[in-house]
Nucleic acid binder design. Structure first.
Lengths: 345, 345
DNA sequence: CTGAAAGCGCTAACAC
DNA sequence: GTGTTAGCGCTTTCAG
């Protein structure tokens, strides 16, 4: 490893001169500056950030903590963050929590030791007390989810409105009995989504059939849609409230041979590769993940990490709104589904 | 930030004693060790890795460099790496190159300065000379692709065999005229795949129609499949040779209304969510990405990063084999495609 | 068993 | 315009 000392020795000058020349200090003569910078290039000098950090400067590491990078939600976030941070010469670290508080804590410990500059996290349901304490010592923002113990800065999506818009779309198509499949966790955003669904129904005095459960069980969603379709008076449309559920229900509907949108209109959640070509094309809630992430990344960089400690700890919440992507899986309600079936046959 | 000095002051002992106690040095009495460790816990001490690194120890950062984390190929890799590194208390950094040498270089500069412990990279087509030099100073492995200038350690997939197996499957179903859609870049693995295709055809003395081009253009693949289907004597099956191409062709086939597998048997590349429910279910080459990545990560950790510098620079190449996932998009060749169409109608 | 002190590479305050 | 020096937090001799 080449150090400033090596450069100094080679040019017969002092280390401090080298340091100043490398940072283009105006006190150093232009000539010396050039000589130093050239020598640095020739020797392949790279500044040792460990040493610089020891002197108090911040690291250029920003951590992103997500449940599982394989979900479209999260890899889209990671991509947007990577681009955003790269532009400012920051390095992105990636931690997967698997939604487990212990893994979250383990990562935070590791990150704290590495003097991370900041953390962007999708928190687990119930973070450990130590996680909370560790986060207090590093600038951070919550993304997508929001846990009260983790400080007031967060970027999220208005899920209530997203689901409400989706439901309204079905109502405007004439549907008056709509199914809903959603998750059960108390905290976070699941309740928001359900509330959006209920709000829309109420506005039209329509009927809802809710299936609430544990979508992390791979078979649960399939069973939920079967339940809905088995009712004597079954819903003519269904709203799915997470990407995971959408995946599982789409697969189940193919197996069941349900005709979409003739027998059932379907609105999914999120837009993954494949949703476009599922059956007649899936009408779905398009989440503004990329924009949200970029906004979040920039905000962390500019409001929380800038040298001047003017950065306030004031609560800050940004809620993005999503848009409905209308494709073929939703249609006007016909009086009799059977009639519709005949017509297309 | 709590330091060893703080702990020392609080307990009225020397910093060196604290340091030794924290690393469970046998020379320190059990009692002192416990007192120190308890104090550390109470004060919320975390060891400052910057300082430790300055003393010569390696960082716990391992970098992963991929073209774009949003592709299934790469997020699967990232996931496997994250899990693998986490187990050994390493931190994964994620760099996106967008397949552009300049971005690759920029990231490598940043990583070099941060004293990264090691690099796992999917190299760009033509890495900069400086990238090559930088990589020489850090332990690294190439993954998936393999560029001769970047050292002899690599983990890859036997693409030639993957495509050959896929083609053979079609041949065994009786197809004797098979289309192939593939990429054009000279280096790396594209040629391997094409060779696999040709080898299989030759074994059966069958006819091939190759469309070779630039799949990064979103419309190119669609045009390629149209070309194949427009020929007077058109192929009865087609082999797709990248994930990207598979996505684009599947979309195009839907638009064209081609009946699969009656009019055309199709074999895709990679297995993404959605391939399973595309049309009759896509027969595809299932790439052993997760296993490969885990193997690669473990290898870097254990062969290249261990303190003892016994780590050899010997060339090492691991080629994994993939398996064919047979679903509904491939069928036995009928004499007349039209007859098949009638039968199902 | 424990303490004192040096030094990793860099920056910044203080000379000249 | 440039040199000297101290010190960031830790590990590691070398002394006791």
């Amino acid at each position: 490893m080449v150090t400033t000392k090596d450069i100094a020795k080679q040019l017969n000058i002092a280390v401090s001169t080298v340091g100043r020349a490398l940072s283009d200090d105006s006190r150093i003569s232009v000539e010396t500056r050039q000589r130093v910078q050239e020598a640095a290039r020739n020797l392949g000098y790279v500044t040792n950030r460990a040493a610089r950090m020891l002197r108090g400067s911040k690291s250029n590491l920003v951590a992103l903590m997500v449940p599982d990078i394989r979900h479209s939600f999260y890899y889209k976030i990671a991509h947007a963050m990577a681009e955003c941070l790269e532009r400012e010469n920051f390095i992105l670290t990636l931690s997967e929590t698997g939604d487990r508080p212990e893994r979250e804590l383990q990562h935070l410990r590791e990150l704290a030791g590495s003097q991370i500059a900041g953390v962007i996290l999708i928190p687990t349901m119930r973070p450990h007390a130590e996680s909370v304490r560790l986060l207090k010592s590093m600038p951070h923002v919550q993304l997508i989810r929001r846990h009260p113990a983790l400080g007031g800065q967060s970027f999220g999506i208005d899920f209530a409105r997203a689901v409400e818009d989706a439901t309204r779309h079905l109502l405007q198509l004439g549907h008056r009995h709509i199914g809903y499949i959603g998750a059960h966790d108390q905290l976070f955003t699941s309740m928001d989504r359900l509330n959006g669904f209920r709000a829309a129904l109420q506005a039209f005095s329509a009927k809802g059939s809710e299936q609430i459960g544990e979508p992390s069980d791979p078979d649960w969603s399939a069973e939920a849609i079967r339940q809905l379709l088995r009712q004597r008076s079954r819903p003519t449309a269904v709203v799915l409230s997470s990407v995971r559920i959408t995946h599982d229900v789409l697969r189940a509907l193919r197996t069941l041979g349900t005709s979409v949108p003739d027998d059932l209109s379907v609105i999914g959640f999120g837009d993954e590769p494949g949703f476009e070509w599922w059956g007649p094309g899936l009408t779905t809630v398009d989440l503004p993940v990329a924009d949200l992430s970029t906004a979040c990344g920039l905000w962390l960089l500019h409001h929380r990490l800038k040298q001047d400690d003017s950065a306030s700890d004031a609560a800050f919440t940004n809620l993005s709104t999503s848009t409905l992507l209308v494709r073929g899986s939703t249609a006007e309600m016909r009086k009799s589904p059977a009639a519709a079936r005949k017509k297309t046959a």
